[in-house]
């Protein structure tokens, strides 16, 4: 049996800068373990985005490139298209990065059926810059730029990215998972594995949206944060598989 707390070979032996109770660290571990188990670490290139996970290139034990804010899917496209087919390319992006400034890039990467894997960390806020409203912030959620709570009339409504991208014919595998308890973390890992397998089998664009915490900017403690994901986020962002196309070119 595996030793449960052994550090994955997919992660370097450095301490991360994430706040206590932040689930970015767990999601890193899931990605790292998956790549290790698939034995592809040495042929993987990750693309770090601009957000709290910008320093993920210091944590993953594979080649990493850091992209401009929102542009990771375009950078990943460039990498994937010029390298031999056996290379695994993934992006790791926050909701501000992917769903706000980078909405154009992600939509077109999915529409092209780009054979990359996107790990989309949705924590309903901008963490890195100190808690501003994200496109995924919930209605009524108080942030630095929605001090009275997000109002639909002036600040619009939260975007359900998985559902939206699933409408694109180019997308092959899309699932939304959560990190609020052990059972869901296990499920998240399965989804991440499925996404990378999709890429390995050359089936096209795959994305896993992971609901994640930001205790620091939500103003909650770690335990309350997990509850907030479960009670506030999951109802608005239902978990599940939104797209699962078996063969390249097949309509779902």
């Amino acid at each position: 049996m595996k030793v449960v707390f052994e550090r994955s070979k997919g992660l370097l032996n450095t301490e991360t800068h994430y706040c206590p109770g932040c689930t970015h660290g767990i999601i890193h571990r899931l990605v790292a373990e998956t790549l290790e188990e698939m034995d592809v670490l040495e042929q993987t290139i990750g693309v770090a985005s601009v957000g709290c996970s910008v320093l993920s290139y210091q944590y993953f034990n594979c080649d990493m490139t850091q992209a401009a804010h929102g542009r990771a899917p375009a950078v990943a496209t460039g990498i994937k298209r010029v390298l031999p087919k056996d290379r695994i390319v993934f992006t790791y992006q926050g909701d501000g990065d992917l769903a706000s400034i980078g909405m154009g890039e992600i939509v077109h990467a999915a529409a092209r059926g780009e054979n990359i894997t996107v790990i989309f960390v949705n924590n309903a806020i901008y963490g890195m810059t100190g808690g501003q409203m994200a496109p995924t912030s919930l209605l009524g959620q108080r942030t630095a730029t929605s001090p009275e709570g997000r109002q639909p009339q002036t600040q619009g409504l939260p975007i359900r990215v998985s559902e939206m991208l699933a409408t694109l014919d180019g997308a092959s595998y899309i699932e939304r998972v959560s990190t609020h308890d052990v059972a869901h973390v296990m499920k998240a890992k399965k989804a991440i594995r499925k996404a990378f397998l999709t890429q390995q089998e050359e089936k096209g664009f795959s994305m896993v949206e992971v609901l994640s915490t930001c205790p620091t900017n939500w103003g909650l403690n770690p335990e309350e944060s997990l509850q907030w994901v479960k009670q506030e986020m999951v109802p608005y962002y239902p978990l599940g598989v939104y797209k699962d196309r078996q063969y390249k070119g097949e309509e779902s």
Binding site: I101, M128, T129, Q132, A144, T145
Partner: peptide, 20 residues
Amino acid sequence: FGYPITPQSELVAYMAKRLP
């Protein structure tokens, strides 16, 4: 009309509060 980025985010937050 703004977008957050350090080290000017306080201006964006100030306007979010003050302009209304």
